Amino acid sequence: MIPTSHELTTLISIPERGPYGDNKYRGNYAGDVLIKLIGFLQANGIAAPYVYDPMEGGMTSRDVCSSLNLPYVGSDIHQGFDVVGDDLHDTGFDLCILHYPYWNMIDYAHDLPEELQKKDMSRMEWKELSRR
């Protein structure tokens, strides 16, 4: 359900996590954040925004777009995608939603091969990340 207010501010407060995504996946975001952004785009003439999430993790963005019948592409380190070094598949997206990892708090890649563990942004030192 798209909210009736299409005002967009720099602060969005969503008190509840909502039904989107896997709530067991640490670090996911409330799907209503994306719903508000989509509502803003729709109110400004983009009827069916094409959404990309390069770090989809718990699949919140995928679930939101599926529920709204919107075109969507998602990638994640668990699918072998390196958000720092790989091409972001720019094919004319209207919205790229990127919820950065919680640096040094959640080890997202602990169950992945060592090559991918080295590419996990939550493990990088700040200086290394800023050089990329």
Rank of each mutant, 00 (worst) to 15 (best):
I2K: 03
T4V: 12
T4A: 14
S5H: 08
H6F: 02
L8F: 06
L8Y: 04
T9N: 04
T9M: 00
T10H: 14
L11G: 05
S13I: 15
S13N: 15
S13Q: 13
S13G: 05
I14H: 06
P15I: 06
P15N: 14
E16V: 12
E16G: 05
E16R: 13
G18Q: 07
P19W: 07
Y20V: 05
D22Q: 10
D22A: 11
N23T: 14
Y25P: 06
N28L: 13
N28Q: 15
Y29D: 11
A30L: 09
A30D: 09
A30N: 11
G31I: 06
V33N: 11
V33L: 15
V33E: 04
K36V: 02
K36W: 02
L41K: 01
L41G: 01
Q42E: 05
A43R: 00
N44D: 03
I46W: 00
I46H: 01
A47M: 05
A47D: 11
A47P: 02
A47F: 01
A48K: 07
P49N: 06
Y50I: 00
V51M: 07
V51C: 09
Y52T: 02
Y52A: 08
D53S: 01
D53N: 00
P54D: 09
M55Q: 07
G57C: 07
G58T: 07
S61T: 15
S61L: 09
R62G: 07
D63V: 03
D63L: 02
V64P: 10
V64H: 08
V64I: 14
S66E: 15
S66F: 06
S66M: 11
S66W: 07
S67I: 09
N69Q: 07
L70Q: 10
P71G: 11
G74P: 01
G74W: 00
S75Y: 00
D76P: 02
D76Y: 00
D76L: 04
I77A: 08
H78M: 05
G80H: 05
G80F: 02
V84P: 03
D86P: 08
L88G: 05
D90Q: 14
T91Q: 08
T91L: 03
T91K: 11
T91S: 12
G92R: 01
G92F: 03
G92W: 02
F93P: 07
L95M: 08
C96W: 14
L98F: 15
H99S: 15
Y100S: 10
M105R: 15
M105D: 09
M105S: 12
D107W: 03
Y108H: 11
Y108D: 09
Y108E: 08
A109F: 02
H110T: 06
D111K: 14
L112I: 12
E114W: 09
E115D: 11
Q117V: 09
Q117H: 04
K118M: 13
K118T: 10
K119C: 11
K119W: 03
D120W: 02
M121G: 03
R123F: 06
M124G: 11
M124I: 10
E125A: 14
K127D: 10
E128P: 03
E128G: 09
L129K: 05
L129F: 15
L129T: 01
S130F: 05
